[in-house]
Each structure stands twice: as C-alpha cells, then as structure tokens.
Simulated scan of single mutants.
Amino acid sequence: MAMSRLEEALQEINREKIQLKDEEIKRNNQLLHEMMEFFIGEFKKDSFFNSIYERFFFGGSFYDGLKVGKPNEFDIDLVFTLPTAANATIATHDDHPGFVQVKVDRNVGTLNDGTLLHIKNIMKWFQGLVDTAKNAMRYHNLNFSVVKTTVTVGPAITFTIGDKRYGKQFDVDFVPCFKFPSSQWLGNYVRLTEGSVDPNDQLTKEFLVVPKPRDNYCQTLFRLSFQGQERLLLEGKGHVKPAIRLLKLYRDQHTDSPIKSYYLKTLALHALQDSSFIYKDATLSSVFVQVT
C-alpha cells in the first residue's frame, strides 16, 4: 500500500513538475539547429578548423533526457580529431584521476605548448573563431541574435541566444573536445560497455578529452569524457531516467544543496552496474527507491 501511494505521488510529480512543454522544445530546437548551421558554416571557413573538425555532438541533460525545468540550456560538443602526423597520445596521472595530458610530436596549429596540448591556447584559438563568426552575422538574415557570450576558464564559451520571433532567450555552451580511439584508453574501459550496449556502436570505440583544467594553474590536464557511453548505458532502462529527474527536482528545491547533476547521474550509473538492481518491468517508485 505504501509503495502504491509513493508510485502515485511520483507519477504526479513527474507529470506536473518535470515534463517539458513540447511547443517550447520544438521552437528552441529549430532555432538551435539554425544557429548550429550558421556557426559551423562560418567556422569551416577557417582552414585549420576544417582540417581537424569531425562533427558536433548534442550533449548535456536535455539530450540525455534528464532535463528538469525549461528547455533553455543546451550543450554542444565540437569534436576534433588531431592530425595523424602529430602522433597524439594520452598520458594519465595517478595524482589526478579523471584527467590526462595530450602529448604531440609536432605543432598542431597554435594549440600546443611544446609537446603538450595547452588549454589556454585552445580557448584563445576557439574564441577567435567565435568572434569572427559573430562579426559575420550582420551580413545574414537570421532568426536569432547573440545577446552575449561568456567565456569561462574552460571548456565552454556560452552563447545567450535571443529568439527574434518570440522574444525568448536560451543558453548554448560550445565545448571544443578531442576524440581518441578506445585503444588509447589505459584503464578498464571494457566495463563501460560489456553486456550493456552494442559493442559495435561507434560510441564504444572512442572517448573524448575536454579542455576543462583541474585548476587555473595547470593548463595541460584535460578532463576525460564518456558522455556518449553514459547515454548508451541509460537508454532503454525503464524508469531510471525519470528517477534521476526526480532526484534533480528534489535537489533544486533545496537551494543550499551542493550536489551536482552529474553526481546524481553517476549514482544511477553505479546502480546499473549492480547485479541486484532491478529496472526491467519495475515501477517508478521501485527504481527510485533502489537508486536512492
């Protein structure tokens, strides 16, 4: 009886407080794609960008299906592949788990300092591309404007986008990142995929490093990113995603809570690795209790 009441309460919260409005999602998605088409087109006019650019990846909680609140924040990863001639390799550090250095044998544009990729160099180069593209906007009839851009230490340049048609605004984070094959991963990489997702999926064959420094003083340590693999692990797992969204809503209603969204997502990922965790055909209340 208690679980039945909990199920009803959680389902009502999910319907009334968490589910996003379809109209707003559609409107912002259309404008986001227009923005991406314009900026990627402008970036590609730079020959060095064009030589290393592979694709963009819609990251973040919205595209993970974990967004709570309005669909007004988006993460876009620009995925780069370093030239073969640079012979780029990953170096891990026991003192800094989750971070790596990227070693190169020769210059990669202006991105390296000696034999290591350097975060400040990368962000300076990327900021130059953004400034050039923004200046080109005056020559195009676009449905959006760039209200402002905000630059952090790394890895994102945040665009506040204005919708000229509806007078709304939303934020887009552009994040440069570098792709490496799974053969370069020096840890127990197979645990992320074994028995959980299709081993032939391209996302199981690569990982990303992101120019998010460990601190302001070390500009050669990059953060590892497995967000593609994490998305695959959460896909099709019953009520696991709704359970994460409920946890995020609870966190948001306690404004003094220091818990980051990624920690809550990681909680669920660890639960999925536990053989005793039951999600198939389980109710939302059952999954929520198990995750917490």
Rank of each mutant, 00 (worst) to 15 (best):
L6G: 13
E8D: 06
E16P: 01
E16A: 11
L20Q: 14
M35R: 03
F38A: 05
F49V: 04
F49R: 04
N50W: 05
F56K: 14
F57R: 14
F62S: 07
D64K: 04
D64W: 06
G65R: 14
G65T: 02
L66E: 08
L66T: 11
V68C: 06
T81L: 03
L82Q: 02
T84N: 08
A85W: 07
A85R: 02
I90V: 04
F99M: 04
K103P: 04
D105Q: 04
R106E: 00
T110H: 08
G114K: 01
G114I: 01
L117P: 02
I119M: 04
I122Q: 10
V130Y: 05
D131R: 11
T132P: 03
K134G: 04
N135E: 10
H140T: 11
V146D: 14
T149W: 08
T150R: 03
V151P: 01
V151T: 08
V151C: 10
A156Q: 12
I157Q: 03
F170K: 12
V172R: 11
V172L: 14
S183F: 04
G187Y: 08
R191W: 03
P199T: 09
N200K: 14
F207D: 00
F207G: 00
L208N: 03
K212E: 14
D215N: 10
C218S: 12
T220E: 10
L221C: 08
G228A: 04
E230Y: 08
L234R: 13
H239P: 02
V240R: 09
K248W: 08
Y250P: 00
Y250N: 07
Y250R: 03
D252K: 14
H254G: 13
H254N: 14
P258E: 06
I259V: 13
Y263F: 14
Y263S: 13
Y263V: 06
H270E: 05
H270P: 00
D274P: 15
S275T: 10
D281S: 12
S285N: 09
S286Y: 07
V287P: 03
V291R: 06
V291P: 11
